[in-house]
Amino acid sequence: MGNIRLEAVHKAFGGVNVIPGIDLDIEDGSFVVFVGPSGCGKSTLLRLIAGLEDVTSGRIFIDGANVVDLPAARRGLSMVFQSYALYPHMSVRNNIGFGLKMAGQPKDEIKRKVEAAAASLNLTQYLDRKPGQLSGGQRQRVAIGRAIVREPKAFLFDEPLSNLDAALRVNMRLEIASLQKKLGTTAIYVTHDQVEAMTMADKIVVLNAGNVEQVGSPIELYERPANLFVAGFIGSPKMNLITGAPASSLGAETIGVRPEHLVAARDGEGWKGRIAVAEHLGSDTFLYVEVPGVGTLTSRTVGELGFKAGESVVLIPDAKRIHRFDKTGKAIR
Protein backbone atom coordinates (compact mmCIF):
# COMPACT_ATOMS: atom_id res chain seq x y z
CA MET A 1 0.00 0.00 0.00
CA GLY A 2 1.16 3.52 -0.62
CA ASN A 3 -1.51 6.11 -0.41
CA ILE A 4 -0.14 9.60 0.25
CA ARG A 5 -2.27 12.60 1.15
CA LEU A 6 -1.12 16.16 1.84
CA GLU A 7 -3.33 18.50 3.83
CA ALA A 8 -2.58 22.22 3.86
CA VAL A 9 1.15 21.50 3.75
CA HIS A 10 3.02 24.74 4.32
CA LYS A 11 6.75 25.34 4.36
CA ALA A 12 8.62 28.52 5.16
CA PHE A 13 12.39 29.01 5.24
CA GLY A 14 13.17 31.93 7.46
CA GLY A 15 10.39 34.34 6.57
CA VAL A 16 9.96 33.10 3.01
CA ASN A 17 6.96 30.98 2.14
CA VAL A 18 8.37 28.39 -0.21
CA ILE A 19 5.13 26.43 -0.20
CA PRO A 20 2.18 28.52 0.91
CA GLY A 21 -0.20 25.57 1.30
CA ILE A 22 -0.81 22.45 -0.73
CA ASP A 23 -3.53 19.80 -0.68
CA LEU A 24 -2.91 16.73 -2.75
CA ASP A 25 -4.02 13.14 -2.98
CA ILE A 26 -1.78 10.46 -4.45
CA GLU A 27 -3.43 7.10 -5.01
CA ASP A 28 -1.73 3.85 -4.30
CA GLY A 29 0.23 2.52 -7.25
CA SER A 30 0.11 5.69 -9.30
CA PHE A 31 3.04 7.43 -10.94
CA VAL A 32 2.85 11.09 -10.05
CA VAL A 33 5.20 13.68 -11.49
CA PHE A 34 5.85 17.06 -9.87
CA VAL A 35 6.91 19.38 -12.63
CA GLY A 36 7.71 23.06 -12.71
CA PRO A 37 10.51 25.54 -13.37
CA SER A 38 13.51 25.57 -11.05
CA GLY A 39 12.74 27.15 -7.71
CA CYS A 40 9.06 26.28 -7.86
CA GLY A 41 9.28 24.22 -4.67
CA LYS A 42 8.90 20.78 -6.23
CA SER A 43 12.04 19.36 -4.64
CA THR A 44 11.14 20.92 -1.32
CA LEU A 45 7.73 19.28 -1.49
CA LEU A 46 9.36 15.92 -2.17
CA ARG A 47 11.73 16.38 0.77
CA LEU A 48 8.81 17.25 3.02
CA ILE A 49 7.14 13.98 2.06
CA ALA A 50 10.45 12.14 2.56
CA GLY A 51 10.89 13.63 6.01
CA LEU A 52 14.21 15.28 5.17
CA GLU A 53 12.62 18.64 5.96
CA ASP A 54 9.92 19.58 8.47
CA VAL A 55 6.60 20.97 7.41
CA THR A 56 6.00 24.39 8.94
CA SER A 57 2.35 23.42 9.27
CA GLY A 58 -0.07 20.95 7.74
CA ARG A 59 -0.31 17.20 7.71
CA ILE A 60 1.07 14.40 5.57
CA PHE A 61 -0.68 11.03 5.63
CA ILE A 62 0.88 7.83 4.41
CA ASP A 63 -1.70 5.05 4.31
CA GLY A 64 -3.92 7.07 6.60
CA ALA A 65 -1.32 7.74 9.30
CA ASN A 66 -0.06 11.26 9.91
CA VAL A 67 3.73 11.08 9.53
CA VAL A 68 4.82 14.68 10.04
CA ASP A 69 6.46 13.81 13.35
CA LEU A 70 8.17 10.68 12.06
CA PRO A 71 11.83 10.93 11.04
CA ALA A 72 12.75 10.06 7.46
CA ALA A 73 14.19 6.75 8.59
CA ARG A 74 10.78 5.55 9.78
CA ARG A 75 8.45 6.63 7.01
CA GLY A 76 9.02 3.53 4.92
CA LEU A 77 9.79 5.47 1.75
CA SER A 78 12.82 5.24 -0.46
CA MET A 79 14.44 7.91 -2.55
CA VAL A 80 16.59 8.18 -5.66
CA PHE A 81 18.71 11.32 -5.54
CA GLN A 82 19.77 13.55 -8.38
CA SER A 83 23.42 12.91 -7.48
CA TYR A 84 22.59 9.20 -6.92
CA ALA A 85 24.13 9.63 -3.42
CA LEU A 86 25.70 6.18 -3.47
CA TYR A 87 27.94 5.24 -0.57
CA PRO A 88 31.35 5.57 -2.22
CA HIS A 89 33.14 3.30 0.25
CA MET A 90 30.72 0.37 -0.15
CA SER A 91 30.45 -2.18 -2.94
CA VAL A 92 27.35 -2.20 -5.10
CA ARG A 93 26.14 -5.17 -3.09
CA ASN A 94 26.42 -3.30 0.18
CA ASN A 95 24.96 -0.14 -1.31
CA ILE A 96 21.83 -1.97 -2.35
CA GLY A 97 21.66 -3.99 0.85
CA PHE A 98 22.31 -1.12 3.28
CA GLY A 99 18.64 -0.42 3.94
CA LEU A 100 17.93 -4.08 4.62
CA LYS A 101 20.91 -4.23 6.96
CA MET A 102 19.61 -1.19 8.83
CA ALA A 103 16.26 -2.94 9.11
CA GLY A 104 18.05 -5.84 10.76
CA GLN A 105 17.16 -8.47 8.19
CA PRO A 106 19.10 -11.75 8.26
CA LYS A 107 22.19 -11.96 6.09
CA ASP A 108 21.02 -14.66 3.67
CA GLU A 109 17.71 -12.86 3.23
CA ILE A 110 19.62 -9.66 2.34
CA LYS A 111 21.83 -11.57 -0.08
CA ARG A 112 18.83 -13.12 -1.82
CA LYS A 113 16.97 -9.83 -2.17
CA VAL A 114 20.00 -7.87 -3.29
CA GLU A 115 20.82 -10.43 -5.95
CA ALA A 116 17.25 -10.49 -7.18
CA ALA A 117 17.16 -6.70 -7.43
CA ALA A 118 20.56 -6.65 -9.15
CA ALA A 119 19.41 -9.25 -11.66
CA SER A 120 16.34 -7.23 -12.57
CA LEU A 121 18.57 -4.21 -13.21
CA ASN A 122 21.34 -6.07 -15.08
CA LEU A 123 23.79 -5.30 -12.29
CA THR A 124 24.76 -8.84 -11.33
CA GLN A 125 28.26 -8.66 -12.78
CA TYR A 126 28.98 -5.36 -10.99
CA LEU A 127 27.91 -6.42 -7.49
CA ASP A 128 31.42 -6.36 -6.07
CA ARG A 129 32.54 -3.10 -7.61
CA LYS A 130 32.60 0.28 -5.93
CA PRO A 131 30.40 3.08 -7.30
CA GLY A 132 33.52 4.92 -8.47
CA GLN A 133 34.18 2.14 -11.00
CA LEU A 134 30.74 2.41 -12.63
CA SER A 135 29.40 4.55 -15.46
CA GLY A 136 26.71 7.16 -14.88
CA GLY A 137 23.96 4.87 -16.11
CA GLN A 138 25.13 1.99 -13.93
CA ARG A 139 25.26 4.23 -10.87
CA GLN A 140 21.74 5.27 -11.65
CA ARG A 141 20.67 1.63 -11.67
CA VAL A 142 22.37 1.01 -8.35
CA ALA A 143 20.48 3.95 -6.89
CA ILE A 144 17.26 2.48 -8.21
CA GLY A 145 18.20 -0.96 -6.91
CA ARG A 146 18.77 0.51 -3.50
CA ALA A 147 15.31 2.04 -3.64
CA ILE A 148 13.38 -1.03 -4.79
CA VAL A 149 15.06 -3.67 -2.67
CA ARG A 150 13.41 -2.44 0.50
CA GLU A 151 9.92 -2.76 -0.95
CA PRO A 152 8.96 0.70 0.26
CA LYS A 153 5.48 2.18 0.40
CA ALA A 154 6.52 4.64 -2.28
CA PHE A 155 9.52 5.65 -4.37
CA LEU A 156 10.61 9.25 -4.40
CA PHE A 157 12.66 10.38 -7.39
CA ASP A 158 14.43 13.74 -7.26
CA GLU A 159 15.38 14.64 -10.85
CA PRO A 160 17.12 11.30 -11.22
CA LEU A 161 17.95 11.60 -14.91
CA SER A 162 19.37 15.08 -15.08
CA ASN A 163 22.98 13.90 -14.82
CA LEU A 164 22.70 11.45 -17.73
CA ASP A 165 23.30 12.18 -21.39
CA ALA A 166 20.32 12.54 -23.69
CA ALA A 167 20.29 9.03 -25.19
CA LEU A 168 20.63 7.28 -21.85
CA ARG A 169 17.96 9.51 -20.41
CA VAL A 170 15.37 8.22 -22.87
CA ASN A 171 16.28 4.61 -22.04
CA MET A 172 16.19 5.10 -18.30
CA ARG A 173 12.90 6.95 -18.61
CA LEU A 174 11.31 3.90 -20.19
CA GLU A 175 12.99 1.55 -17.76
CA ILE A 176 11.85 3.43 -14.67
CA ALA A 177 8.30 3.69 -15.98
CA SER A 178 8.03 0.00 -16.80
CA LEU A 179 9.68 -1.06 -13.54
CA GLN A 180 7.17 1.00 -11.61
CA LYS A 181 4.26 -0.54 -13.51
CA LYS A 182 5.64 -4.02 -12.85
CA LEU A 183 6.09 -3.43 -9.12
CA GLY A 184 2.89 -1.46 -8.75
CA THR A 185 4.47 0.76 -6.11
CA THR A 186 3.45 4.40 -5.77
CA ALA A 187 6.06 6.74 -7.26
CA ILE A 188 6.54 10.47 -6.93
CA TYR A 189 8.90 11.86 -9.49
CA VAL A 190 10.28 15.40 -9.55
CA THR A 191 11.54 16.94 -12.76
CA HIS A 192 11.77 20.25 -14.53
CA ASP A 193 11.56 18.50 -17.89
CA GLN A 194 8.01 18.52 -19.18
CA VAL A 195 8.80 15.78 -21.70
CA GLU A 196 9.68 13.42 -18.83
CA ALA A 197 6.50 14.48 -17.10
CA MET A 198 4.34 13.87 -20.16
CA THR A 199 5.84 10.49 -21.00
CA MET A 200 6.05 8.93 -17.54
CA ALA A 201 3.18 10.23 -15.45
CA ASP A 202 -0.22 8.85 -14.66
CA LYS A 203 -0.83 12.19 -13.04
CA ILE A 204 1.09 15.42 -13.36
CA VAL A 205 1.21 18.09 -10.68
CA VAL A 206 2.30 21.41 -12.17
CA LEU A 207 3.92 23.60 -9.55
CA ASN A 208 4.77 27.26 -9.76
CA ALA A 209 6.08 29.43 -6.91
CA GLY A 210 5.06 26.79 -4.38
CA ASN A 211 1.47 26.58 -5.61
CA VAL A 212 -0.24 23.78 -7.47
CA GLU A 213 -1.28 25.23 -10.81
CA GLN A 214 -3.06 22.15 -12.07
CA VAL A 215 -3.33 18.44 -11.41
CA GLY A 216 -4.33 16.01 -14.10
CA SER A 217 -3.34 13.35 -16.57
CA PRO A 218 -0.84 14.37 -19.25
CA ILE A 219 -3.56 14.55 -21.89
CA GLU A 220 -5.83 16.67 -19.70
CA LEU A 221 -3.06 19.13 -19.11
CA TYR A 222 -2.23 19.25 -22.76
CA GLU A 223 -5.77 19.60 -23.99
CA ARG A 224 -7.30 21.63 -21.22
CA PRO A 225 -4.68 23.73 -19.45
CA ALA A 226 -6.32 25.43 -16.49
CA ASN A 227 -4.36 28.65 -16.88
CA LEU A 228 -1.73 30.51 -18.80
CA PHE A 229 1.14 29.08 -16.77
CA VAL A 230 0.25 25.46 -17.53
CA ALA A 231 -0.53 26.34 -21.13
CA GLY A 232 2.90 27.85 -21.54
CA PHE A 233 4.76 25.18 -19.59
CA ILE A 234 3.32 21.99 -21.07
CA GLY A 235 3.95 21.28 -24.71
CA SER A 236 6.97 21.65 -26.94
CA PRO A 237 7.42 23.90 -28.79
CA LYS A 238 5.49 26.26 -26.55
CA MET A 239 1.91 27.27 -27.15
CA ASN A 240 1.52 30.57 -29.03
CA LEU A 241 0.00 33.13 -26.69
CA ILE A 242 -1.62 36.10 -28.34
CA THR A 243 -3.03 39.23 -26.73
CA GLY A 244 -4.76 42.28 -28.16
CA ALA A 245 -7.32 42.42 -30.98
CA PRO A 246 -7.32 38.72 -32.00
CA ALA A 247 -7.94 37.80 -28.34
CA SER A 248 -10.59 40.38 -27.56
CA SER A 249 -12.50 39.42 -30.70
CA LEU A 250 -12.99 36.01 -29.03
CA GLY A 251 -13.96 37.60 -25.70
CA ALA A 252 -10.66 36.77 -23.98
CA GLU A 253 -7.66 38.65 -22.63
CA THR A 254 -5.26 36.14 -24.09
CA ILE A 255 -5.73 33.31 -26.52
CA GLY A 256 -3.44 30.36 -27.03
CA VAL A 257 -2.91 28.14 -30.03
CA ARG A 258 -0.51 25.21 -30.03
CA PRO A 259 1.94 25.17 -32.96
CA GLU A 260 0.43 21.96 -34.28
CA HIS A 261 -2.99 23.63 -34.44
CA LEU A 262 -1.70 26.50 -36.52
CA VAL A 263 -1.69 25.42 -40.14
CA ALA A 264 0.61 27.21 -42.54
CA ALA A 265 -0.70 27.82 -46.05
CA ARG A 266 0.27 29.80 -49.11
CA ASP A 267 -2.98 31.73 -48.96
CA GLY A 268 -6.33 31.77 -47.16
CA GLU A 269 -8.06 33.41 -44.15
CA GLY A 270 -5.70 33.84 -41.21
CA TRP A 271 -2.70 35.68 -39.89
CA LYS A 272 -0.42 36.81 -42.70
CA GLY A 273 3.25 36.99 -41.99
CA ARG A 274 6.78 36.33 -43.13
CA ILE A 275 8.81 33.25 -42.20
CA ALA A 276 11.80 34.30 -40.07
CA VAL A 277 13.26 30.84 -39.51
CA ALA A 278 12.27 27.44 -40.82
CA GLU A 279 13.55 24.42 -38.86
CA HIS A 280 13.36 21.21 -40.87
CA LEU A 281 13.48 18.18 -38.59
CA GLY A 282 12.47 15.67 -41.23
CA SER A 283 9.25 14.43 -39.75
CA ASP A 284 8.23 17.93 -38.69
CA THR A 285 8.93 21.46 -39.77
CA PHE A 286 8.81 24.32 -37.30
CA LEU A 287 8.12 27.71 -38.81
CA TYR A 288 8.79 30.87 -36.84
CA VAL A 289 6.58 33.47 -38.48
CA GLU A 290 6.58 37.19 -37.85
CA VAL A 291 2.99 38.43 -38.00
CA PRO A 292 2.60 42.23 -37.93
CA GLY A 293 0.54 43.36 -34.95
CA VAL A 294 0.56 39.88 -33.34
CA GLY A 295 4.20 38.93 -32.85
CA THR A 296 6.25 35.86 -33.69
CA LEU A 297 4.16 32.70 -33.93
CA THR A 298 5.35 29.12 -34.14
CA SER A 299 3.71 26.70 -36.51
CA ARG A 300 4.33 23.01 -36.68
CA THR A 301 3.69 21.38 -40.00
CA VAL A 302 4.06 17.76 -40.93
CA GLY A 303 6.87 16.77 -43.23
CA GLU A 304 8.38 18.85 -45.99
CA LEU A 305 6.08 21.42 -47.53
CA GLY A 306 8.86 23.43 -49.06
CA PHE A 307 8.53 26.58 -46.91
CA LYS A 308 11.66 28.72 -46.80
CA ALA A 309 12.77 31.59 -44.66
CA GLY A 310 11.72 34.96 -46.07
CA GLU A 311 8.58 33.66 -47.75
CA SER A 312 5.14 35.02 -46.99
CA VAL A 313 2.72 32.65 -45.37
CA VAL A 314 -0.77 32.55 -43.90
CA LEU A 315 -1.31 30.89 -40.51
CA ILE A 316 -4.76 29.39 -40.03
CA PRO A 317 -5.70 28.41 -36.46
CA ASP A 318 -7.89 25.40 -35.78
CA ALA A 319 -10.92 27.24 -34.40
CA LYS A 320 -11.92 24.34 -32.09
CA ARG A 321 -8.48 24.21 -30.54
CA ILE A 322 -8.12 27.82 -29.46
CA HIS A 323 -7.61 28.21 -25.69
CA ARG A 324 -9.07 31.36 -24.14
CA PHE A 325 -7.81 32.96 -20.93
CA ASP A 326 -9.26 35.80 -18.87
CA LYS A 327 -7.49 38.76 -17.24
CA THR A 328 -6.27 36.66 -14.28
CA GLY A 329 -4.85 34.08 -16.66
CA LYS A 330 -7.52 31.47 -15.95
CA ALA A 331 -8.92 29.43 -18.78
CA ILE A 332 -12.38 30.39 -20.00
CA ARG A 333 -14.35 27.21 -20.52
Binding site: A72, A73, S78, A85, F98, G99, M102, R146
Partner: peptide, 22 residues
Protein backbone atom coordinates in the same frame (compact mmCIF):
# COMPACT_ATOMS: atom_id res chain seq x y z
CA UNK B 1 27.85 15.65 0.21
CA UNK B 2 24.83 15.77 2.45
CA UNK B 3 22.82 13.77 -0.09
CA UNK B 4 24.70 10.67 0.95
CA UNK B 5 23.82 11.09 4.59
CA UNK B 6 20.24 11.73 3.59
CA UNK B 7 20.28 8.56 1.53
CA UNK B 8 21.38 6.69 4.64
CA UNK B 9 18.54 8.28 6.53
CA UNK B 10 16.08 7.23 3.83
CA UNK B 11 17.57 3.73 4.13
CA UNK B 12 16.41 3.72 7.72
CA UNK B 13 19.71 4.51 9.46
CA UNK B 14 19.61 6.22 12.86
CA UNK B 15 22.06 9.04 13.55
CA UNK B 16 24.48 6.70 15.31
CA UNK B 17 24.45 4.26 12.41
CA UNK B 18 24.69 7.08 9.91
CA UNK B 19 27.88 8.25 11.64
CA UNK B 20 29.38 4.79 12.05
CA UNK B 21 28.55 3.27 8.67
CA UNK B 22 28.58 6.26 6.33
Amino acid sequence: PKDILEAARMDGATVTKEIIYV
